[in-house]
């Protein structure tokens, strides 16, 4: 198997030259996202450099507790990011979103790493951390879309919710149209991605594995599994997030709490 060609720091820096194109476009069209783009780039470089640094240690150490704590940190960061991006208030949503993330990862890792791949050591950092990260990273994006849709519509169309609450036969049914819409909006992009994967997109994990020296067949099998894990993880996380958040977002009379969104 061929050794992967390492990228020198100079070559890596050279890659940044390409950023001139989008930034020139932003300036030309007066799109005010240059500052945000530069900040995001700096954050990406710093975060990934840090990740590389501590993953070296975490992989070398390969201790179950450290790995579990690391995944829990990822779940918490995902929770805070979802709440912030959806514009919600922290106090109602930290617990339900964190629990949803934790349950989703627990089920997925146990199933895929334990039953499907048959790892002897499920908490092996080389599998446990990247696969949890892939699932959580994707779940984050889709959760933000689904959760924003759910609470946004529920607040904007609360007349419909209250109408169904009185005229319908249960609170569950009065929330059903909002839950359906949230799940659709959250998962539709993922269904679209899944249906064209390999045709117009080569997923990052597969590309990484091939670059890392794996055979395309092995890389594809992993990719299929990871897509399944991502889809199940995103669906599970979104549905659980909504169901658990419902316990905090309504009062005992079924009324939508007034301060769900950050002012």
């Amino acid at each position: 198997m061929k050794e992967i060609v390492d990228i020198g720091i100079g070559s890596l820096a050279l890659g940044f030259l390409l950023m001139v194109i989008p930034i020139a476009g932003f300036i030309y069209f007066k799109v005010k996202i240059v500052k945000e783009t530069v900040i995001a780039l700096i954050r990406m470089v710093m975060q990934l450099s840090l990740v590389a640094f501590y993953l070296e240690y975490i992989f070398a150490w390969n201790n179950a507790w450290v790995n579990v704590i690391w995944v829990c940190v990822m779940i918490l960061v995902g929770t805070f990011t979802t709440i912030k991006r959806a514009g919600l208030t922290y106090r109602f949503f930290i617990l339900p979103f964190a629990i949803s993330g934790f349950i989703s990862i627990l089920i997925l890792d146990a199933f895929f790493l334990g039953f499907v791949i048959h790892l002897d050591y499920v908490f092996d950092a080389r599998y446990f951390i990247p696969i949890s990260g892939m699932v959580l990273g994707n779940a984050l994006n889709h959760n933000i879309v689904g959760i924003s849709n759910y609470f946004g519509r529920l607040t904007k169309e609360q007349d419909l919710y209250y109408f169904l609450l009185v005229n319908g036969d249960s609170r569950k049914n009065s929330l059903a149209p909002f839950i359906r819409s949230a799940i659709k909006s959250g998962l539709n992009p993922l269904i679209a991605t899944m249906s064209v994967i390999g045709l117009i997109s080569l997923p990052g994990m597969m590309t990484g594995q091939i670059l890392g020296g794996s055979s395309p067949m092995v890389a594809i099998k992993y990719q299929i599994l990871i897509m399944l894990a991502i889809f199940v993880g995103c669906s599970l996380n979104l549905m659980l997030s909504i169901l658990l958040a419902n316990r905090f977002a309504f009062d005992s009379f079924g009324r939508i709490k007034a301060n769900l969104f950050k002012k």
């Binding site: 169309e157 007349d159 419909l160 209250y162 109408f163 609450l165 009185v166 005229n167 036969d169 249960s170 609170r171 009062d251 005992s252 009379f253 079924g254």
Partner: peptide, 23 residues
């Protein structure tokens, strides 16, 4: 009260003002 509200709502129908529902 909060314990009886579901049962009470099950005895009612409500036509909202203007019926401006997103339906």
């Amino acid at each position: 009260n909060s314990d009886t509200i579901a049962a009470i709502r099950n005895k009612m129908i409500w036509l909202p003002q203007n019926s401006n529902l997103p339906v």
